[in-house]
Simulated scan of single mutants.
Amino acid sequence: MSARDVNVFYGTTQAIRNVSLDVHADKVTAFIGPSGCGKSTFLRCFNRMNDTVESARVEGDIRLDDTDIHSPEMDVVQLRARVGMVFQKPNPFPKSIYENIAYGPRIHGLAAGKADFDVIVERSLRRAGLWDEVKDRLQESGTAMSGGQQQRLCIARAIAVDPEVILMDEPCSALDPIATARIEELIDELRGRYAIIIVTHNMQQAARVSQKTAFFHLGSMVEYGDTSMIFTNPAETRTKDYITGRYG
């Protein structure tokens, strides 16, 4: 995906200012920066989630495989199948584990019958590292799982429709350290199969899981580059000050 000169407004307030970047298919891209700097707002531009906010207005050019995602020909439902999202708080549907995974493929017509759904459910849960934990209780409610399992279920649900991009908005902020480590391992395992963008407040997490990092401050993207360079030799003073803890 690519973004060029993206601006986002909430009413008269400008939340994002002239942001341009390319998202690489085989890399994890991290968005870091202080609270309220526009990371999540910009993330939500990639699957038009800001459309759900009445006062929001997005300007600029955002493309998925060279197709303008704001063009009249772009079906928003299809866009959100191709660009999946995992939220800060795990939000499994109040349905069985099986139905949480089967729901997306069902509404998008990706399976012809139960055998197809069985294959998709098992494959998605395996990719999310959950299959061995839940294979004997697929009919239990997804909401009865632990927080870390629920978040992996939400990742499995996102990948069940075979997206090209996965957006993760602080996916570990509600989880304990053990569950966080498991999600980080999962992100690393999924890299290369999907383009992944992760918003995180945790700079150590960004350094561990990403290959590209964008630093945001006051609605602008200050710096974007290889994660190793951003954390060891940033070009901008504001980036260095944030990474060394002078503000945040």
Rank of each mutant, 00 (worst) to 15 (best):
G38M: 00
C37D: 04
R193K: 15
V119L: 13
V58K: 00
S35R: 10
G104A: 11
I69Y: 00
L110I: 04
I155H: 01
I107V: 13
I16T: 03
I62G: 12
I183A: 03
Y194A: 05
G219C: 01
R208L: 10
V8M: 07
A156G: 08
Q151S: 10
S35Y: 08
D169V: 03
L218S: 14
S40F: 02
E99H: 04
Q149C: 01
Q14C: 11
L125P: 04
D241Y: 04
R137I: 10
V6A: 07
T200Q: 04
P72E: 11
D5N: 15
I196F: 09
D136K: 11
V28L: 07
A3V: 10
Q205S: 04
R48M: 12
L125H: 02
I178S: 14
D26H: 12
F216A: 04
D22I: 06
K95R: 14
L186Y: 00
Q88R: 09
F87H: 09
M145E: 06
G147E: 06
I159Q: 00
D136N: 14
E164N: 14
F31V: 02
Q78N: 15
R238Y: 06
D66F: 07
R80T: 08
T200Y: 07
Q88W: 07
I69C: 01
T227E: 05
N100M: 06
G245M: 10
C37F: 07
S146L: 07
S141E: 11
P234G: 08
M1D: 05
R182M: 13
Q78M: 13
L153H: 04
L125C: 00
L167T: 02
A81V: 12
I120T: 01
P92M: 00
T12W: 11
K240H: 13
G148S: 08
E185M: 14
I155Q: 04
I101G: 05
G225K: 03
A207L: 14
R17Q: 14
F87W: 09
P171D: 11
Q204E: 15
T200W: 00
T52C: 14
E164Q: 15
V121Y: 00
Q211S: 03
K240R: 15
K135T: 09
I155D: 03
T12C: 12
N7Y: 11
S141T: 11
A111Q: 08
G192I: 09
P72L: 07
D65I: 12
L64F: 00
K212M: 14
T237D: 15
V28W: 02
R208S: 13
D5S: 15
K95E: 13
A156T: 03
V53G: 08
V19G: 02
I230R: 00
T237E: 15
P94F: 03
L153S: 03
L110K: 05
I198P: 01
G129L: 05
E184K: 06
A156Y: 04
S141K: 12
M229H: 13
R106F: 05
Y194V: 06
R4F: 13
D22C: 04
I230F: 00
R63W: 11
L21I: 05
S228E: 15
